Amino acid sequence: MEHFSQTLARAAERKGGEQNLFSMVSAPASEQDLLAQPDDRCLAITTKIVFQSGFAWRVIDQKWPGFEQAFWQFDPNKLVLLDDSHIERLMNDTRIVRNGQKIKTVPLNAQFILDTAKAHGSFAQFVSQWPVEDITGLWLYLKKHGSRLGGNSASFVLRRMGKDTFVLSRDVTAHLIAQGVIDKPATSQTALKHVQQAFNTWQQQVGLPMTQLSQIIGLSVGNNERQV
């Protein structure tokens, strides 16, 4: 497995220098900003990721004001009360994407966020306290306790919230395979542990956040100008 300084140098060369490279990557939110996010915004982020999964992101972005209206600004205390009659009406609401299975995730994730907030003060407080050196453990927790948060969805939710996390994009996965960390996309808990260990090592080598490590990896091997 190459030292991350080599990956960083390759990405900088491809993107016109280190200064230009770092203008293309984002940093995680400060702890203060992460903690300031109310539960309704965490539910909004979660819902947006669920609806964007397997769908054109720009369509969801364009319709998002309608989602906010249809789902009562994502107040979890209201959305846990959604029953079959509410869901049926939403299935005919042209303000949103009318996918029944995804609509049904909203009250489920609202309950998950409320339960987590009751135990930890707020959902953002819970996320903030989770150690970055076990970020894949948080992915698995969200997958287990939330609704439709498998695959990359959990990491996307955390990234949108501003939690420091890497994302296993196609380019990042290709790099991990090339480095011998895994031999195929990481779906098992064992593979995810190997990935976590690799990122922990790289972070120790160069001191960058996980967010930037994965973005830099993508820019060192991929074609996109910006990384998620």
Score class of each variant (00 low, 15 high):
R95S: 02
I103G: 06
G54I: 03
G17Q: 11
N200V: 13
L114Y: 04
A124E: 07
N77G: 14
K48H: 07
R148F: 10
L149T: 05
N92R: 12
R170I: 14
T173H: 00
V25T: 08
V195R: 04
L176V: 00
A56E: 10
I217L: 06
E133C: 11
K118Y: 11
W57A: 12
N109E: 04
Q179N: 13
A29C: 12
L192I: 05
R95A: 07
R98T: 11
S147Y: 04
K193Y: 08
M91H: 07
D33I: 11
A178L: 11
G150Y: 01
F166V: 07
K102S: 10
P38R: 02
R170D: 15
F4E: 02
L213R: 00
A70I: 00
S214Q: 05
R89K: 14
L114A: 06
S85G: 03
V172Q: 06
A198M: 09
F71W: 05
M1R: 06
L176Y: 05
I182C: 03
A36W: 09
K102M: 14
A198Q: 14
E13C: 10
L90V: 09
I177F: 05
V106G: 02
K163A: 11
F71D: 03
V127I: 13
L79R: 10
V221M: 01
K184H: 13
G66V: 04
P76A: 12
V195T: 08
I182D: 05
K184S: 12
S169P: 04
T201F: 00
Q52I: 01
G121R: 02
G66L: 04
K163G: 05
V132Y: 00
T201N: 03
W202P: 06
K15M: 14
L149R: 06
F126R: 06
S5W: 01
T94Q: 11
W64L: 13
D93E: 11
S153F: 00
P131K: 00
L114F: 07
T190A: 15
G54E: 05
R10C: 13
A124T: 04
F4L: 08
W57Y: 12
L79N: 07
I96V: 14
S153M: 03
V228Y: 01
L108Q: 14
K163R: 13
F166A: 04
H3D: 14
G207Y: 09
K102F: 08
T116F: 02
M1C: 05
R160H: 15
L192F: 10
I96S: 06
G218L: 08
Q197F: 01
T190S: 12
D171I: 08
L114M: 09
V59P: 13
K143S: 11
C42A: 14
C42M: 12
N223K: 11
D84V: 03
R58T: 14
G54C: 01
D61F: 10
Q73W: 10
A191D: 15
Q227P: 00
W64I: 11
F166H: 01
N99Q: 10
A117G: 07
H3A: 05
Q204H: 05
F112H: 02
T136A: 13
T173L: 01
S30P: 08
P76N: 07
D40S: 14
F67P: 13
